[in-house]
Design a protein around this nucleic acid. Structure first.
Lengths: 154, 154
DNA sequence: TCTTGTGCTCAACCTTACTTGAGGTCCTAC
DNA sequence: GTAGGACCTCAAGTAAGGTTGAGCACAAGA
């Protein structure tokens, strides 16, 4: 992984960061940043030497991408989540708010799935009933056949 | 996707299910079940015609795998999570409990990450401060350089 | 002048988690 | 007796999310 520490390179201008600096400050690999750019999730401008320069507001965007990655949200979804957040200038308060509402919806869904599974593990397996039929989470479509030989008690 | 409806085939014996039946009852594709078996996550016996037969307790295991998949837990992790749950017989109450404790730890970690991100979106972006420096979640390593041109207010 | 550091492009490769396809076996029904 | 359905194996393909490597450019320092 080619990740460079910030300080190895001087900023070209005060408000623009090199790819190495962005990598050091966000924890995203240089190659990942180029990949995100190609994917359309982030954007950069080029300096006189054809090197990428990132405005500071891109750091927040990249940080959000990294967090989303940690919890397994696909990049395609991020593209939609960021749809109304501009790439070419610092987003306004309203723009972030609009985007964050979409984010929250996605996060909430994910959290609820996990919470259901957690309570299943406590309330169903934990209690020892081991019932497949009674378990709404493990039978999402509720479409079990009921042909005999049901759940067994130990 | 080759998923068969239960009822298309008759069970060979009351307590053993064919791969098609298991697929219909768990929602997992037939090809996925074969893959899980090769991976070591599930197991089957063969009947006289070399066809897979699954004991009923395997349904629960597969259901848990499907749920874990929905929340993005890698199969490798499941292998560890299931390490002490036997494949060859219905797991005992204690065995499920031991395994479920490991599960709960993993789930809790994931849920906490999501909760932190949710509260960030409300408390930080939502409030409009847009502060990169003050945001613990977006700066996990807390390793930001502090070279001027800080977060901007709108 | 030569090396080192940072950056560039493009193509190939990698891992995870499966799916698809080719070619074959049984069994049942028409 | 042949068609169809469910199953088998093994090999190859796919999509996501990158990483790695080759080959090159430019700038600064020893």
């Amino acid at each position: 992984m080619t990740t460079y520490r910030s300080g190895d390179a001087r900023p070209a201008a005060d408000d623009w960061l090199s790819i190495g600096e962005v990598s050091a400050r966000t924890g995203a690999a240089v190659s990942a940043l180029r990949f995100y750019e190609e994917f359309g999730l982030i954007a950069s401008q080029r300096d006189g030497r054809n090197q990428r320069r990132y405005p500071r507001h891109m750091l927040r965007r990249i940080a959000l991408i990294s967090v989303a990655k940690r919890i397994g949200i696909p990049l395609q979804d991020l593209l939609e989540a960021f749809a109304d957040v501009p790439l070419d200038r610092p987003p306004s308060h309203q723009e972030w708010q609009r985007a964050s509402r979409g984010w929250k919806r996605r996060l909430e869904e994910r959290r609820l799935t996990i919470e259901r599974l957690e309570s299943e593990l406590t309330g169903c397996i934990g209690c020892g009933c081991l019932s497949m039929k009674a378990c709404a989470l493990l039978n999402p479509g509720d479409s079990l056949a009921d042909d005999g030989a049901g759940p067994r008690r130990l």
